[in-house]
Structures are given as C-alpha cells and as structure tokens.
Design a protein around this nucleic acid. Structure first.
Lengths: 401, 401
DNA sequence: TCATTAAGTCAAATGTATTGACTTATTACT
DNA sequence: AGTAATAAGTCAATACATTTGACTTAATGA
C-alpha cells in the first residue's frame, strides 16, 4: 500500500514555454542567417507576422536584437532587417588545463572581448581555485570597463576541462587533473562568483565554439574531433550538444586500439601527450607550443614520423565517428598548434570508405576547425550563451523555468 | 540583390504544440509508471490538477486511457488511477530480412496481437514488394477480426531492415539487401497501404522495442547492441531514438578492428554471418536457428571457439559504446537464438574498465535484452507508436502539425 | 464527532498566438 | 504620369490552452 517509489515523468509545458521557445527560435534564426526581416522570420519559423512582430519588439526592448536600415528589394514595402546585438549578452568562459588556466569574456555573437591566462600552480584544486577565481574576477572587471551594463547582461560562467568526470581514478596523473575532475567545481565557482555555472569537457567546449562561430555553425549533426593533450569528440546531435548520462559522451580518446599485439587507448598514440613523449619534451615548457608549430610547419623529420602514425589513428577515429554517429561532417580541431593540425589533416587524407560516402553530400566529410589556444575557453563561454538562447527541448519544459 | 539562399530556421510553436506535448507527457508517464491518479500526474508533470483533468478527460474520450476503481490510501478523497488502454492504438510492424519477412500488429502498450511470417523470394524488391504488401494486408485484416475499430486506430506502418541506407554499394550481396536499401520502400509501402510509413534499421528497431516493453523501458540513455546477421547499435539518447543525419547512426558493425595484421569490420568477426561461416552453414536453412540454439545451450565445442572470439570482440564493442555514448546501460539483444545470446553474455564478462565504472550506478553496465525472432518486427511496429505518442522535441514544432 | 488531509471540479482570469482587415511603401505595367 | 500589383508590417478582436483560487467530495484519525 505504501508506494514510496518516485513517479518518473517528463515535465509538461505551458504558454511561457511556448514563448520562450519562440524567442529562442528567432535568435537562432538571426544567428544562422544574419540579417532577417520580420516577414523573413515569419516564413522561416512558420509563425505569423504578428507573432514575430511582438517577439522582435520584445527582443529589441531587451537589447538582444536591433534593426538596420530598411532595404528595398523589389515590389512592396521595403523590409527592415534585424540582427543580433553583440552587446545583448555576455558570458565568461574558463578553461582549466594541466598547467595553465585561461578565461575569456564573449558576447552574444561569440566575439572574444577579454582574454586572460595564468599558470596553474601545482597542488590541484586546493591551491588552484583561488587563482582561478582571481582570473575570472579580473576578466569580469575588465569586461565591465569595456562595455556598459555588462554585469546585468552576464548570463553565466562556463568551465571546461579535460574529462572524463566522476570516474574511479588510477591516481597516476602528475598534473592533478584527476583531483580537479573529482572536485566540486560547480559549487565552488558558483559560490565564488554568484553566477550560473556550467561544466563540459574540452572537446565538448570546442564543439560548442564550432557551433557558435565555426565550421559547425548552423549544422545540426556534427562531430568535432578534438586533439589536445588527450583526444575527445564533441557531439552536436539534433542541433544540441550531447553530454551522455554523465557528461562523458565522446571520450573517444579512451577507445581501445589493437595494435602491435596489445590494446592501447587511442590517446596514448595520437594525442599531444604522445607527441610530447615522442619528442621527449616537457609539457610544462611554455615555448613548446610555438616550437611544435615551427617544427610542423617546416615539416621537420623529428615530427613527421609521429604525424604519419597519428594520422593513421585519426583516420581510423574519423571512420569510427562516421560509422557510429552518422554526422553531416567531422571537424578536426584542437588545442594543438595550428600548423600541426593542418599537417595532420593533410596526412589523414584520403579517408577510409564509410557510410559517409554517399551521393548528394553537401559538406566535406572532414573539415578543419579552430586550432588555437583560446578555442576551448571560447567554447566554455559559448556554453552559457547556448543554454540561455538556443532552441532546446529542455527550455520549453516547466522544470527549466 | 537577388538572395536565393534559403533561410534556415527551426520552427516555432503555439498552443497546439503545447497541448500536443502535454498529452504525450501524460501518456508517457502512464506508460512508465503504470496506474497514476490525476493528482499523481499533476505532481509528476508539474502541470496543474485542472490541466491534467482536462487532458485526461480528452484522452479518455479518445479511448487512449481508462480509469480503474478508486483506491483509498490514507486520509483524503480516494484517488482514481488511470492506465493506458491497450486497444487505444495499433501499429503494424514489418521486418524485411535476408530470406524472410515478418509482420506483426501491436497495440498501444506493445503487446503483439498478430504475427505472420513468410519466405522472401529471390529477386529483391521487384518480386518482394508484392509478397510484403500481401503479408501486411493479411496482418491488417486479421487484426480487424480481433478488435473493433482497428483501422481507425491504426497509427502507422513501421518497417525495419538491415542498414546502412543510401550508401554507394559494393554489389556483392547475394541476399539483395543492397537492392532493398536503395529501393524507394517508403513510397511503395505508403502507396500500397495508405498508411504513414517509417523506416529504421534493425538495431534501431530492436532499441525501440526495448524502450517500449523491454530493458530500456523508461530509460533515457541506453544503447542496444544488436547481434543479428550483421551487428548494429540502436541508440536511445535523451529519451529518443537517435538516427543520425541519414538514418545510419549506430552502424557499429562496420567499425574497423585491427587484428591479425589486417583491419576487419566488426561484423565480419562477431555476427551471425560469421557464425554461419564458421559452421559452414547455409543461412537460408530454416532449421538453422533452432540448431544453433541447441548447440549453444549444450555448449557444443563446434560453437564454443566462435563464442569465445565473438565475445572478445563484443567486449571491445561494449567498451567502445560506453566510451563514446556514455549510456546508463548497454543492452545486448539480437535476432540470434536466445541461448546463443545468453552464452555470449556469459562469455563477455568481466567487462573492460571504462568510464562506465563509477560509484552510484543504478543499472548494470550490461543487460540482456530480447532475443527472439519477432523483436525486430515488434520494434518496427513500436516506431509509429512512439512517433505518435512519445514526448519528442519535434512534436511541439509547427512543421510537425 | 469533527478537524484534517487529499482528490478533484468550477468558473473566471491570464498569457500567447492567430485572424482578417487595414496601412504603408515600393515597383511594374500601360 | 497614373495605376495596379506586390510585399512589409500594424491593429484590434478572437481563439486556445493553462492557471488561479475558491469550492466540493470523501476519506482518516484523534
């Protein structure tokens, strides 16, 4: 008689959910297409002109969209194009990496306004959180110096760091990432900044960045293969970042390869970590990034052997991604030096035959994405922007209100 | 000036979208939890009692839900539990396999009411469509003989067959599946039956079945590893079947393994096809299924070597699935004989260490799913039921109305 | 017996999108 | 030059689904 088992159900929705969705759809349409008139928006979203007018008026009042000069394009009344106002919203992005942490402030359209970087002292969270909170506070105050009302328009703080999260650890990581992965980072950052905080792994952040301003812009099914210290895949499925049950979806670097008579995780063979080992380089060396970029762009033999081997593994990874996710395109990005990523892309081709080989493809199977040191921090910041403004199923539900 | 580029945007929504979503949420809640009172539903869905009353009244009028006798459970007015009415809706499921085709009729709760099976003549679609349409028509009329008003309540026809779809083919498949994959099946079935028709690959169908009545019931992140003639994964992500950009997501059988000095697709090593080869058996032999079931349940040495090798490959596949999808659970199912699936599950354990190893797991990492000949046809039928009644983002949008 | 608790209903209010007529501004045609 | 055609956008009224708050019903427990 005593039924203690909780009832599981999805949340319903109501008028406010409808309205919230339609606002997001408008913003998304302007983000993807650039300037659009109210009539354009009505046709594209299948809403009526009147509804679009109401919503646009409201978004304009909120400072999220603005009008440009009317344009004549044939018969009929000239149309007034609307565009996103970059200063309509801001977010802070934070990248926590092995020996460095970076923070950026970005605006609604994904432009980076403030950058800051600092070394992360050894000792993990116990010593690092203070450094991080200082860095964020610095970025925040510099942003306030650049634009008016930035605090009011700050939608959140997005953090990114290498995954996987919540795993039983092996305890052998000298860079203490494992300690960070177990640390209650969300609460600490939330308490320390008073902002809404989100967390994703660095591959997911890179994908979020690619979707906002990069090669995945406006694409609903894309996978970003991220080559950094480790290797991960950021998954854009049905137009949304897919996180999995525990935020660890896409940790493809831990996929096992059978090679040389043993099974090895992909990222032990094809990541920056493996390159550092190949070069006997110290990952903490601040000049290393530039040096590798230089070696890669010169085609130095010390690096070519690694590139050839890594490219073979990445070729396999891309085949795997195409096979299991069936995306419209795969984007290769990374925190690796740009010249290295370009060399890898060149060395990866031609791709292996896969289900992606089909008539009528609109996009290349493999595209280069961002490969600079700031793309993960940018993607971290894009997270809160996306959560606040992109159309998502969760956003219409009552339990998100 | 002439801007021909089409405007891309997501569709907006309105009251009808809201209402449609809330109806689906009610049905979903009753499907997952069984009998619930209006008050229960209001709490679970976060809608008001009044709204729930309105919707339940409407669903009852539509014959989709019905009430049971009121139950007293402490102080307060006794509550009236509502349940799904099985006869509220029906769907036909169709499995097209290499040498056989099966059709079933299922009801709203996933019970199979009618089964029919027939051999598929050689020659592919040109000779096969007639057989299939006859089979479907037979099932349909038998259903009409069993229940009243079945035609009115028929929400669609779901088809399932081995993928991948739309690929440039190699043309060496004696069973003509490639011809089927290129054939305009949807149009043919739609024209031939007048029903809404959907198409999935067989792994996706198996996952749809597991979600409606099997091990994935009520679970939002699950992957069904399907062992049939080939190998595929059916992906339940965020509570919905994920299809990918071209309906080929989850075709894990084509993933490449490096082994014995060459790269081989997984399904050349661990599928029923490989077992048939191992046993030098004729796949068209109608007794083969029973014979393999017998060999597997007796632990016959002729099959144990294959099981051991296949289990190793499946162990790797499960690790891969956990790594890239981060599901709550992996379900092993198949059109393989049940005893074989059970032997495989036993031989697969213990699983490889992965991100799935974490404190506080609620579900086992690997669970057995359905392994009978009818589960794909059942899943095919579950497709239209799910499309019509399960909460989905697409269902609230105007372009789905 | 009566206060308390919980389920469920009623009628009015609220919030959004829709409808259809109307205004405005421009081009194309005669 | 004049006028019809076309398209953008507004106005006021309406429709639709959920919400609100008071109310009714039916049980338990002290």
């Amino acid at each position: 008689m005593n039924d203690i088992r909780p009832i599981r159900a999805k949340s319903g929705t109501n008028h406010e959910g409808t309205s919230a969705h339609n606002r997001r759809v408008m913003i998304d349409a302007l983000r993807i297409n650039g300037a659009l008139s109210r009539a354009d928006l009505a046709r594209a979203t299948r809403l009526t002109k009147q509804t679009v007018s109401n919503i646009i008026e409201e978004l304009e009042r909120d400072g999220l969209v603005g009008s440009r000069e009317a344009v004549r394009k044939g018969r009929g009344q000239p149309s007034t194009p609307y565009v996103l106002v970059p200063e309509g919203a801001f977010a802070i992005g934070l990248q926590i990496d092995r020996h460095v942490t970076r923070a950026v402030a970005v605006d609604l359209v994904g432009s980076v306004l403030v950058r800051a970087e600092t070394g992360l002292p050894p000792g993990g969270p116990s010593t690092g959180t203070k450094v991080i909170l200082n860095l964020v506070a610095g970025v925040r105050s510099r942003l306030a110096g650049i634009v008016q009302q930035s605090e009011k328009r700050l939608v959140g703080l997005g953090a990114a760091m290498p995954g996987p999260f919540g795993m039983e650890g092996s305890g052998d990581d000298p860079w203490m990432m494992e300690a960070w992965q177990k640390f209650p980072l969300l609460e600490t950052l939330s308490d320390g900044t008073g902002l809404n905080v989100g967390l994703q792994n660095d591959a997911a952040a890179a994908a979020t960045a690619e979707r906002m301003v990069g090669a995945a812009h406006g694409i609903d099914h894309a996978v970003c293969l991220f080559v950094g210290y480790g290797i991960g895949a950021g998954l854009i499925l049905n137009g949304e970042l897919y996180r999995g049950a525990n935020g660890n979806a896409g940790e493809i670097g831990m996929a096992l390869l059978f090679a040389d008579g043993k099974t090895t995780p992909l990222e032990h063979r094809a990541s920056l970590a493996s390159l550092y080992q190949h070069l006997s380089a110290d990952p903490a060396d601040p000049d290393l990034h530039a040096r590798i970029n230089d070696l890669a762009s010169r085609g130095d033999p010390s690096i070519e052997a690694w590139i050839k081997a890594a490219a073979a593994d990445l070729r396999w990874s891309i085949h795997l991604i195409e096979t299991v996710f069936d995306p419209q395109t795969v984007i290769l990005c990374g925190s690796a030096p740009e010249a290295l990523v370009n060399r890898l892309i060149a060395a990866i081709g031609p791709l292996l035959p896969s289900v992606a080989e089909r008539r009528g493809r609109m996009l290349p199977r493999l595209q280069p994405g961002m490969a600079d040191s700031w793309s993960v921090a940018l993607g971290a910041a894009a997270g809160p922007i996306s959560r606040a403004f992109d159309p998502r199923f969760a956003a219409i539900l009552k339990d998100s209100q």
